[in-house]
Design a protein around this nucleic acid. Sequence first.
DNA 1: GAATCACATAAGTATGCGCTTATGTTTTGG
DNA 2: CCAAAACATAAGCGCATACTTATGTGATTC
Lengths: 104, 104
Amino acid sequence: MIENDIFRALSDPTRRAIFEKLAAGGMNASALREGMEISQPAMSQHLAVLRSAKLVREERQGRFVNYEVDPDGLALIAQWLEKYRAYWPARIEALKVLLKDMDQ
Amino acid sequence: MIENDIFRALSDPTRRAIFEKLAAGGMNASALREGMEISQPAMSQHLAVLRSAKLVREERQGRFVNYEVDPDGLALIAQWLEKYRAYWPARIEALKVLLKDMDQ
DNA sequence: GAATCACATAAGTATGCGCTTATGTTTTGG
DNA sequence: CCAAAACATAAGCGCATACTTATGTGATTC
């Protein structure tokens, strides 16, 4: 079950930090490690978990592997959240403003 | 960190099932167990985790304890998701329709 | 083409997590 | 009151998980 993978992947703070970094722009694994105090294998393993959760996708570029946010995982969380939208009415207005902004 | 508690709480499929049940309507712990094949202590422990993640809140009613969805946890997830809204444009249209419906 | 770089995988270990059994606490009904 | 019901908490156990060290793999550079 993919929902399982997604929430499990995000339950680790290190993995959320990695994801947040990637959300600011695609990056290879070495660049991701900068300023994070994490070993190379640990990073590789975290990326594998994020990848199998469809939160991140990879792209070989020579001997580097570029990583970037995969919209699929986020869409699944959004979909999950929508099921319970009746419970967060307070945020509706904020979302409306947001959508209006994206309209231009 | 509360975000940690939330994602960790949702990473367990049993806990997501409990949450989903509660989303359909408030219920006490015994009622929640019906049709779930889960022991009483296990249920109590799961509810404690959901509670500390602000996904669920309790209300004593005699010797029963009624549980219901707490909007706070959901709002926090929505807030977290919004940070990455640039990455799920495909879902924007669906959300728009949704918000329009809620307008009446 | 051999050394090196960027990264993945393997194996082992310590800690966390979800379950069980057992017991405690609060409330109600007779 | 006191027995039972509804839940919470405690302690222990097996398994997942996040890390480490070591090694493997594919691409590049000299």
